[in-house]
């Protein structure tokens, strides 16, 4: 779809400034592009390549390595259903099949109403709360098929205001005020912090530190 809009470009530059080298910001910036468009558009990747100073192929290489980045539009809500061992032992696969049947889609597809995409995912670190699911990366624990149906009907009824649309992760961003920043420098420029040098024990008589 598009390049970053002006507000996001400003945000992108703030994020880049938090790293010693611009390319380090690439994954957060790809998330930003996905937050803007719901997926990572080719034009956005071209824009990111300019912003961090690499070739577009390098951005693509990074983007396609990570499964959260979608290069095509997906449903407004991604339902990540875990089927890894702990969830498999407690009904994760049955939950996935139920979801497929209920929504009439296979993993990766978008439901007809454009609301849902389901994914058969790997362990999402809620193993004691198996079987579990994430809706746009927010958890639903110990989910029965009835619970699943409830989540779906609540979303359809617009009752889940707590869930951001796909692409948005944390609702709070780190922001370091200029006067609070200790200072991020490139690895070529950065050196030993002064405070550390001044806190070294005085050399003893043998001359060793």
């Amino acid at each position: 779809m598009s390049r970053l809009n002006t507000a996001n470009e400003t945000l992108a530059k703030e994020i880049i400034a938090r790293y010693p080298r611009p390319k380090s910001a690439l994954i957060p910036l790809l998330h930003l592009a996905q937050e803007q468009d719901g997926y990572v558009a080719d034009d956005a990747m071209l824009h990111l390549a300019e912003l961090v100073g690499v070739e577009p192929a390098e951005v693509l290489g990074t983007c396609t390595f990570y499964e959260m980045f979608k290069r095509e539009p997906v449903g407004k809500y991604i339902l990540n259903i875990c089927t890894n061992l702990s969830c498999q032992l407690t009904g994760g696969e049955e939950l996935l099949h139920h979801a497929e049947k209920t929504l009439g889609i296979r993993p990766g597809d978008i439901s007809d109403d454009g609301l849902f995409t389901i994914e058969d995912v790997e362990c999402i670190a809620a193993c004691t709360e198996a079987p579990c699911m994430q809706v746009n990366y927010r958890y639903e624990y110990r989910l029965s098929t009835d619970d699943f149906d409830q989540v779906i009907s609540d979303i359809r009824a617009g009752k889940r205001k707590d869930l951001p649309e796909h692409g948005t992760l944390g609702l709070v961003r780190q922001h370091i005020p200029a006067d609070r920043l200790a200072g991020i420098e490139s690895p070529e420029e950065a050196g030993t912090p002064d405070w550390f040098a001044s806190r070294q024990p005085a050399p003893d008589e043998s001359g060793k530190a």
């Binding site: 690499v54 192929a57 390098e58 290489g61 390595f65």
Partner: peptide, 10 residues
């Protein structure tokens, strides 16, 4: 210095 080809996917 022309990284125009790259590993893609995983």
């Amino acid at each position: 210095g022309d990284p125009l080809i790259h590993f893609i996917d995983r």
